[in-house]
Design a protein around this nucleic acid. Structure first.
Lengths: 142, 142
DNA sequence: ATGCCTGCAAAGCTTTTGCAGATGC
DNA sequence: GCATCTGCAAAAGCTTTGCAGGCAT
């Protein structure tokens, strides 16, 4: 349950934190912007400010509870860290996000880092394309 | 020369465009922020506004002359498109950027896209780590 | 009781835009 | 000459911060 994970992160268990964690766990969108979370709070009639959403998400990130990604489009998206690393493939038309993990690629990255004298601390791999979902509006971005 | 490439992009050949393209070609930094370009213009005593730098870089991007990347840190970086696709490895301590190309990874990406029913239009692979450069300040980011 | 949290409003940063004058073709 | 371009300043969009009051422990 949320309470424990928040306390374990060294944070006080407060209503905003509980609610935000709950939303991240329950939402069908696994990748949400701060605005998305905020709107969902509004929908649930919670009186929590956008600034708090940002603060809490940043704290959760520092605590390793969530990951922050920078997809195209300026807004950061947040995703609950479920412990399984993966990369992303994003549809440029409908915004759908799929996750994938490729052992070969992960291995190559290590090799490349070594060859360049780097110790990898993190990486970001995002594929952008057009998905074949029939419901995808497949409209070119303006 | 610059003149031809600008005209070919369907843009009028103007002093700001020439200068900006020149800077991108001459700078030892292959990855520059708009601010970097602007500062270099100042250094060269050109009276070109930051807004123009952004406008021109965006036009160059649309024309395929430059690529825009979003490394960590909020600012976009621009890089002359020299025709050879590559990915990036960025030092979190000193900001140094190395380029690499791995055929295996590129191939895997295609395979992953196919498996997920996507047609890839673009991708972004950035490794973040610590470089072993003796001059690297190797200080942890605050 | 104390120190951490929150809401609000204001500020910060990067990037974009409106407009009037300037410039390339 | 006319459309495109530029500089300036203002606006926009996302995110952070200051502050005074509120809440968890």
């Amino acid at each position: 349950m949320e309470e424990h994970r928040i306390r374990q992160a060294g944070l006080k268990v407060t209503l905003p934190r509980m609610k935000i964690l709950e939303i991240l766990e329950q939402s069908p969108l696994r990748h949400m912007t701060a605005e998305d979370v905020y709107k969902e709070l509004i929908a649930r009639e919670e009186e929590i400010g956008l600034a708090t959403v940002y603060r809490v998400l940043t704290q959760f990130e520092a605590a390793g509870l969530v990951e922050r990604h920078h997809f195209e489009g300026g807004q950061a998206v947040f995703e609950l860290d479920r412990g399984e690393h993966h990369d992303h493939i994003v549809c440029l038309d409908c915004g759908r996000v799929e996750e994938f993990l490729d052992k070969t690629i992960e291995g190559c990255q290590e090799k490349i880092a070594r060859k360049n004298g780097f110790r990898i601390r993190d990486h970001s791999l995002i594929l952008y394309g057009e998905c074949q979902n029939p419901k995808c509006p497949n409209r070119p971005r303006e």
